[in-house]
Design a protein around this nucleic acid. Structure first.
Length: 193
DNA sequence: AGGAAGATCTACT
DNA sequence: GTAGATCTTCCTA
């Protein structure tokens, strides 16, 4: 029985939220057309105490939504790509969980079209790729993902979480030694082993 | 006003 | 394995 994940779920440390988001469903409503995938890889960013976090330097135009409500999105541009985070904790505490990879569920043909790729393994196996597959843009920055009328939602369908692995974060230059990355063991959609 | 950096991806060798 | 793409934001002068 699928349930929308409530805001309270995100009112905790990202170090708790990140592993618990594994196995949950990220759903995109594109004018009534549904694209969804199961979350198989996440990373935690701790804000003021984490030099790798975008909010480490304080509030700016780019990262303003990190300082907002839990359960809202933070979408940002990196090179030519986009990445999505889910904001955690109280307003003013800018921590978040980065969604790094999905296992595709619904809307495969739309994802192929958005990505211009045919192979399923090329659709959502990285933070930039999944944003492209789900048509997540900077225009969705700051939206509330805990509402059923939102274009992006997070669902729990009761999936039994198997073992997950903890490792170092990927692609960052500061505080890269911290083990804040979580991914499902033996899932081929994880971006990097 | 200009330049550098960035939680990435793809293509080519 | 490495280079190049290509955009926004922020820092410095």
């Amino acid at each position: 029985m699928p349930n929308l994940i409530p805001k309270e779920f995100f009112l905790r440390s990202p170090l708790e939220v990140a592993p618990q988001l594994l196995g949950k469903i990220l759903l995109r409503n594109l004018d009534g057309k549904i694209i969804s995938g199961r979350i198989v890889e996440t990373e935690a960013y701790l804000g003021p105490t984490d030099p790798a976090a975008h909010s480490y330097i304080g509030k700016t135009k780019r990262n303003a939504s990190l300082f907002g409500e839990a359960g809202h999105l933070y979408v940002h541009t990196i090179h030519t790509q986009k990445c999505v985070d889910i904001v955690c904790q109280e307003v003013g505490t800018p921590t978040s969980v980065l969604i790094r990879a999905l296992e595709p569920l619904e809307g495969g043909s739309l994802m192929k079209k958005h990505r211009n790729k045919e192979k399923i393994i090329d659709l959502t196996t990285g933070p930039g790729k999944l944003c492209q597959a789900l048509a997540i843009t900077r225009e969705l920055d700051g939206i509330d993902a805990t509402r059923t009328d939102s274009p992006v939602q997070l669902w729990d369908d009761g999936y039994e979480l198997m073992d997950f692995v903890i490792g170092k974060r990927v692609g960052i230059t500061k505080a890269a030694e911290q083990e804040y990355r979580f991914f499902l063991r033996a899932n081929k959609f994880v971006s990097k082993k």
